[in-house]
């Protein structure tokens, strides 16, 4: 980190999450973007952190509950009737 320890980089790191989540006021974003133009390491950290979050979310969103797990859950909760209704309506999962 010796090549990358000036003050603005430290400040960016402190607000990195909020910057990525779009929760910072516009003037602060502008300041950060100005810093990013001149600091390749910070640009890399922002890009790869953003991508890390995207990648972790991407495969999850389509994941449905496995049918057998759902069936055992509904049985355990004595909700078998609703399980059958849902499945026969093709709305399972």
């Amino acid at each position: 980190m010796s090549a990358h320890s000036h003050e603005n980089c430290q400040a960016l790191l402190g607000t990195l999450s909020e910057y990525i989540d779009g929760e910072l006021p516009a003037d602060l974003c502008k300041e950060i973007e100005k810093h990013l133009e001149g600091c390749e390491n910070c640009r890399i950290v922002v890009n790869t952190t953003r991508r890390t979050i995207d990648l972790v979310q991407a495969p999850q969103q389509s994941e449905a509950l496995p049918d057998d797990v759902r069936e055992r859950l509904f049985k355990r909760l004595n909700l078998d009737t609703y399980l059958r209704e849902k499945l026969s309506n093709g709305q399972g999962g």
Binding site: M1, I44, T48
Partner: peptide, 27 residues
């Protein structure tokens, strides 16, 4: 401290490479 140590920009690698079966296991 949470200081970044690795500065490689892999963010533009193609999605199918990032999310290959091996990539998903790494995640």
């Amino acid at each position: 401290e949470v200081m970044p140590e690795t500065f490689v920009d892999w963010s533009l690698l193609p999605e199918n490479e990032l999310l290959s079966e091996e990539g998903k296991r790494a995640i």
